[in-house]
Design a protein around this nucleic acid. Structure first.
Lengths: 205, 205, 205, 205
DNA sequence: GATGAATGAGTCTTCATTCAT
DNA sequence: CATGAATGAAGACTCATTCAT
């Protein structure tokens, strides 16, 4: 294990500033399109100082993704096998949609990475992410078998939830170009529609 | 206007090879991540020879996107106001899914571009794409008002169809990491699920 | 405005080395003919290090021209309306000739630029240079009207002074090929001739 | 000697077109700044076809300079030892000025070359040009010794004539920026001034 | 004679990273 | 901790020239 000395307050602050800046830049331009210069400027640090906190551009990117993945999976992790099936799933959809609204940069960071073949986080996907999905898919499959929801493929259900919610973050410019909304107004319409969509299919049995 | 004289066979062949190679590379790495070197190597040409056919990296990218956009909108364009509403929409979903299966690189090319703010195709989105969506959304809204399908927001319906189908192309590596399918087997499951999903909501009125 | 923080000693030194090297190279080959490689080598720096001090080749060229223009116009600026007309003008001629002798590279830098249409310093010419010439031409015209010198066109007089003096810098190789002088010996002959030339015309009234 | 086959009419025409185009381009941008592409386009030929007529870019440049040098020296060659000294010299000045007016591109071609150290026509300068200047300088010196004109250095006289007349071609943009004339109007003023200038000095004895 | 196609050698510029202080 | 200075490697693009037809 890498013995990591406890960080001072200023270190903590700078690390946070760097990750915040990196999120902004990486999510806008992808890994290759981002430059340390832009990140350093956004973080209010000099370029060499950046590399004092992180050994390389890759390391910043990795740290970002790792720190985010946990957060990212939280909504799914919260899906409660003991709760009411339809309510649980609808609540999951709305939590994901809320994340798309409040954390679009994080969503785009992942999207960028995965669209390009996930060269830097394949491990996380095949490991913890897959494990969690398998677990929750089993829960949903159990509900279906018990007749509590319509019989449907739990994996494709999860994919569809990811797709429909993250779409509002990842394809944001397209959505806005078509709807011409002010601010986040369209998220209410999206929530209503997605509730309707998933209620319909879950109760269609 | 730039009088473009008819292309010779060899030009036709090389242009095609370049666009094919560029599709491969741009869809994998995004615009900034792609290098002319890689495209040239993939096309079997020298780098300067590449630039004999296209004036710049940007020009290759633009040519690709332009040539693609038409194709890309075809499935939606084919949605027939005179057909059976549910059948038409389901058929549209399946056409989009089929495109995600057979043209995943094209899908990722667009995804890359839009996730990064569509700096190079905003015009196309605000112009022809929006126009087509507005037209078809009106058709769907008409069906809903006539009580032929459940009352739902046509724009969010279209977004959800884009999202759920393109997901299988854009997030391909994630889907495969989770499902571990052989080849394209999982597309059948996807088709079944999406049919179920959209039939349910359309008939839920 | 671009707050330019005070330069360190090493910056001052390197900037000076670059401008000196650039003067040498640009004056010999013109803007397009000059390469950053040659300038960098002449300055004893690496090419990227050059671009650490100046953002581009153009910027080096501009910096050179700007820094020079002031110096360049100094002799004319020193023409004193209150002085003796003939003495003032002759002194001006000799100052210009002296500049051609001691700063031939600067002269050739301007010559190169202007022969090729002044694409990069038209502004300076139409602005400060023209203003100064207009001012001094008015002085000379005043002298002529007052009968202190022969009646002559002050603009063409100034042009002829520029031409005859700068000639010894700009056409240096030709002058030397014809006169085969050692060192700067021929400048004395030039000074004598030009004094004779301008005394004759100024007093010819 | 290079056995040169007699040229066909079409060859004659294309060679002429190339030289005309090259004059335009070289005089505007200097040797290094000129591209075969621009010359070819200006000549209405393809680039390889250009190189069918001339083996290289250098060759075009050399051919231009050679063909021009003869013309260029014509005004001086016409200076007649048997004529009236002052009239001969004034006539020479006006011929040179007229050439600056009608052949400014040729003047700038030479200027470009010589400012940059005459790397490609040193031979011509040290040979035929110097010989002619020596000859005519002797004529002028003879006139001076005979008391027919003021005693002056013939070489510097010739230099000053070159300088003052060619200035209107070589520094054309500067002259126009300052005088803001319409068309060639200022050449009349120049002629008047130069006549005045040289009459004064020649008769100042 | 003429041209479409191809390329090797530059040429400017960017950028992650290292060095010295 | 922090930064000014420096650089090797790469990347887009240019251009004189050659090849094949």
């Amino acid at each position: 294990m890498s013995q990591r000395r406890p960080r001072t307050r200023i270190q903590e602050k700078n690390r946070a500033a760097i990750l915040e800046a990196a999120l902004e830049v990486f999510s806008q331009t992808g890994f290759r399109g981002a430059t340390l210069d832009r990140i350093a400027r956004a973080a209010g640090l000099s370029k060499p100082n950046l590399l004092y906190y992180f050994p390389s551009k890759e390391a910043i990117h990795s740290a970002l993704l790792e720190e985010l993945l946990d957060n990212w999976l939280e909504p799914l992790r919260a899906l409660d096998a003991a709760g009411d099936p339809v309510e649980e799933i609808i609540a999951y959809v709305l939590r994901k949609l809320e994340m798309a609204r409040t954390m679009p940069r994080e969503s785009r960071l992942f999207a960028n990475e995965i669209v390009q073949g996930a060269p830097r986080i394949m491990g996380e996907i095949e490991g913890p992410l897959k494990a969690l999905v398998d677990e929750k898919a089993a829960v949903i499959a159990g509900w279906a078998e018990a007749g509590k929801i319509a019989p449907l493929d739990p994996y494709h259900l999860i994919f569809s939830i990811w797709a429909t919610t993250q779409h509002y973050a990842d394809f944001d410019v397209q959505v806005r170009a078509i709807l011409k909304p002010g601010g986040d107004a369209h998220f209410q319409g999206a929530a209503r529609f997605l509730k309707q969509l998933y209620c319909a299919v879950l109760r269609s049995g």
